[in-house]
Design a protein around this nucleic acid. Structure first.
Ligand SMILES: [Mn+2]
Ligand SMILES: [Mn+2]
Ligand SMILES: [Zn+2]
Ligand SMILES: [Zn+2]
Lengths: 134, 134
DNA sequence: TATAGCGTTAGACAAAGTCTAGGAATGCAG
DNA sequence: CTGCATTCCTAGACTTTGTCTAACGCTATA
C-alpha cells in the first residue's frame, strides 16, 4: 500500500476523491502502520515540494476518519493521534515519552463484556494501558 | 463523604492542605461519583458566595489527581474529565451526547493481558466503549 | 513586627483545532 | 471554446482548553 497508484485506488474505493493534497497526506499515513498527530502530518506534508494547508490537513484527516481509512486515538489530552492501522488492536501509551504503541489484538482476551445502555450501539472498544518508565 | 469536616479529613489524610478553595472544589467533586470537566467545576465553584479562580481550579485538579483523589479520564479530544470515583472501573463514552458513564469492574473480565514493554510499568488499564445512539 | 513559605489571583500566553470568505481546479452544457 | 456549477483548497481570524507569570494574601514562626 505504498505507491501512488495504490493509494489513489484506496481513496477511490473508499469514496474519497483523490486530490493532490489528499494523496499526499494518504502517502504519509499509509507508508506504514503508525500514529501521527495532525501537526506532524502538516509538517511532513510541507517538507517536499508539495504543500497542504492546515485547514486541508484537518479536513482531510476528518474525512479519512469518517470513511474508515484512519482511526482517531484519544489518549493524550493535548492532541489526537491518527492511526493508519485500522485493524482491531489496542494501545500502550507511555506518559513519560508520549509514545503510542500497538498491542496486538490477540494479546488481550475478554471473557466478559458489558451490556450496552438502552438505545445505543457500540462503535469501538478501546483498551489503553498507560505505562511509565520504571 | 459529604459534609465539610469529612472532606477536610479526606484532604488532610491525602497530604493536601485543606484551603477554602480546595475544600470547595472537593465538595463539588465528592458529592457523588461523577465525571466533571474543569470548566464545569470552575462554573460550579463560582455559583455560590465562595469563589475560585481558573488557575486555582486547574492547579487543584492537578494536585488532586497527583494525590489519587480523582482520576483524569481522557476520552473527549476537547476536554479532560475528572472522575471522583477512583475505584477500579471502566467507561462508556457516548459520542452523540458527550456523556461519560461507568462500567462496573465486574462487567468486564480479561483472561489474557499483554506483557509490558521492557523498562516500563503499568500505571492504569483503561477500557473505553465508545457508543452512539442507535 | 519581620520574614518565609505556601496558596491564590488576573490576565497574558500557548497550542490544538474550527470557521469563513474567497480563490483555484474540475467537469460539464451550451 | 466558453460559461457555469461544484468541489476543493487556502490564509488567516477566531475559539477553546489549558499553562504560565508576577504580584499579592494568608498564616506560622521567631
Ligand atoms: Mn488540552
Ligand atoms: Mn482539541
Ligand atoms: Zn495503533
Ligand atoms: Zn468513572
Amino acid at each position: 500500500m505504498n505507491n501512488r497508484d495504490d493509494i489513489v485506488e484506496k481513496l477511490k474505493s473508499s469514496g474519497v476523491t483523490p486530490t493532490t493534497q489528499r494523496v499526499e497526506i494518504a502517502q504519509i499515513l499509509f507508508a506504514r502502520p503508525q500514529h501521527l498527530s495532525a501537526e506532524q502530518i502538516l509538517e511532513m506534508a510541507n517538507e517536499g515540494s508539495s504543500t497542504a494547508s492546515k485547514a486541508t490537513v484537518y479536513n482531510t484527516l476528518g474525512l479519512f476518519a469518517k470513511k474508515g481509512l484512519v482511526k482517531e486515538v484519544i489518549v493524550d489530552p493535548s492532541k489526537v493521534f491518527y492511526d493508519s492501522n485500522v485493524s482491531r488492536h489496542f494501545h500502550f501509551f507511555n506518559t513519560d515519552t508520549g509514545m503510542l504503541t500497538d498491542i496486538p489484538v490477540d494479546a488481550i482476551n475478554f471473557d466478559k463484556l458489558p451490556e450496552l445502555p438502552e438505545g445505543t450501539e457500540s462503535s469501538s472498544l478501546e483498551v489503553i494501558v498507560r505505562i511509565k518508565n520504571s
